[in-house]
Design a protein around this nucleic acid. Structure first.
Lengths: 217, 217, 217, 217
DNA sequence: AATGAATGAGGTTTCATTCAT
DNA sequence: GATGAATGAAACCTCATTCAT
């Protein structure tokens, strides 16, 4: 996300004022990625047209094929970016509190008011085999990292329960993001990260904290 | 829900003898609804073609327009059906345990091995205003009924927290259904209702059990 | 060619008069095949657009995909038809005179004034592997049948010379068809079958008649 | 023809030293012409993309428009070049043997192993009027020169037969070139100039040798 | 009531060409 | 002079829908 050059690319409407096409390839690529990410995340793959994306980015449609070979290729690039974004921040997560912070960040609004799109994107499928593998792997390893913080080790026998619980935690986050973006339900949609933090933290503790003895098995 | 039973939809034999042909019409309608529900739920609205649905149902494509006016109309009919199905069973839910049973039923496999499609369907949007209102209302009242069981009353002032918590509970269920149907993640996808029941029950209790008046912290 | 139902399908312009779409699938298929054959033969695969073909046939463009899956599929169907047409007539060719008749028929105008398109079509390539195999095989076996009439047997050792000569004979026919259709050169283009018959017969005799002893080897 | 020699077109070294950069321009033009000729000849006009040509030539696509105004202009330049190449060598052809040598040269491989492309190119059409006129004229005068060697005079009345025969001879050559380049038929494709010489010579004699006044039958 | 042929709008992609640098 | 970014037209194809039968 730090590579977003947010100063330059933070517009998402066909900027009516400047007719000066920027003629900067990497910037154009970035504009397309941003626009695509938003559309794919909110509307899904099939409901999104490349014309929509190009219009949002303020560039010509043909450039999608130039830079990403196809609509499918653009989608895959979005997924790969989301996988990166979700991969690194967790590196430092070593306590359940860290995990909670990550989850809140991914579920609630960002400091600049934008909604985070990574989780939403990971729920969208294009039907393509390669893209789906990226999705699956990213989701799976996200859950596994949560389980690891909770004490799970890959070599554990019978530790499946912890993984299942981590996946349910992930499901909670995904469900919230989805409802916020597509249902407009209140108070959920307008809830701040702080308001969501308390119940989310309770769920996290319930599911993954090993303190209450006698739960496992 | 009883309509789901395969007894009624026992396929489309030409049955040449009986002159009662209106039976055919309603049966055809039903076949289309079943097929559409599955496709819309699993693939989403935009990714589903009316030809797919007609082929699954074993009937001619033109009948979709005949009976439901349009693809959109068919989708709306599916949503209405899902709203009914989710509306009635809850009527009797008066304890948190009842709520848990409903949630498990909606999230895990049915006795006959079929996946329940209602929640999945409620996550799909066609972009149409009318259809989206049905979705929203159904989800909202589903959450509200959960909150009511937990002690919330519509006239309460300041009871928003309980509603939010019910919506998070709903989000958990939706997220699980979604992951099970679209990611193939294990062990989540293959988990039985029983295996899911324990953690789901813990989450439900954590979020909605009002027993300790000082629940928070 | 006898399957052409020439009465019905002998138009090649978007029949302006009758607005009554015929709603007869096999006839529509046939109209498309006729139109495509002409376009592909005269203009080549790449220069022909499916809209051209549909307009010539007087039907909607989408029907090309409906009946032939793709432009490529339509082309392949044209080739297959041409292969059939060139396959049967030769069955009875047992003398060089028979071969000459076949060649004249394929090179000069038909009784009804239409140009024969089979040879022309066999010169066109779409770049597709499957289609090209059909082309190759048809041309090769056409030449081999000529060589057989001239005395060649597949089991011959050292009979390659006869095959080469048959291929040159075929080349002559192909070249004439091509020049007549694409260059407008006179008197070649307007020459009748009769006028072409004499020189063609001489060439055929020269290349394939074994009478003059001492030529072979 | 001498321009074809690889010595002149020895690729596009940046050659940083010489300040004479006009050399680069003409060299670039030449590289484009060579590449275009090959592509147009083998694949036809419509199936060839300017990007293919530029890539083959190792230069930027935009230079095609710079130097030749358009794809069409480049094609015309190729045709003009082919017309020149075919025009001069015949000047000295005064006997049927000379004609045979020219034909063999144009049909079979060159000494350096490259296929001659002129005849192939003359069979390709872009649909453009001007370009087609060049094609037609070149082919026509090629045939006329053959007829002249065989005794035809432009002022002859009733000498049409000789022209027709020359055109058939030309057709034979064109057909062979075409089959060799696009069908892979054997033994034709791999035949050497020598192997082709005997039958070609027989055909030439048969068609154009005027020695026996009562040639016909 | 049901079928399948036909249609037109719109989707993705390709390609020749133009424009800044 | 040369490059590569950008553009718009047009190509192939898909799909919901309508029309005869």
């Amino acid at each position: 996300m730090s590579r977003d050059l947010p100063v330059i690319v933070d517009q998402h409407e066909p900027e009516a004022s400047t007719p000066v096409r920027s003629r900067d390839a990497t910037n154009t690529r970035e504009l397309l990625l941003q626009a695509a990410r938003r559309r794919f995340a909110y509307d899904g793959y099939a409901a999104t047209t490349v014309r929509d994306i190009a219009a949002d980015a303020g560039v010509n449609v043909a450039l999608i094929n130039r830079y990403f070979a196809s609509k499918e290729g653009l989608f895959e690039a979005c997924l790969a970016r989301a996988a990166e974004d979700l991969g690194s921040p967790d590196a430092g997560a070593v306590t359940l509190d860290d995990v909670l912070q990550v989850m809140i960040t991914q579920v609630a609004a960002l400091p600049n008011g934008e909604q985070p799109l990574q989780l939403l994107l990971l729920l969208r499928s294009s039907g393509d085999e390669r893209a789906d593998r990226i999705r699956r792997n990213t989701l799976q390893s996200f859950a596994e990292r949560m389980a690891e913080v909770a004490g799970w080790r890959a070599t554990d026998a019978g530790g499946e329960d912890l993984i299942l619980r981590a996946q349910i935690m992930l499901a909670t986050g995904l469900g919230i993001v989805l409802l916020r973006s597509s249902s407009g339900m209140e108070p959920l949609t307008s809830a701040t990260g702080q308001q969501l933090g308390t119940p989310l933290g309770e769920v996290l503790t319930t599911l993954l904290s090993s303190s209450p003895p006698g739960r496992r098995r």
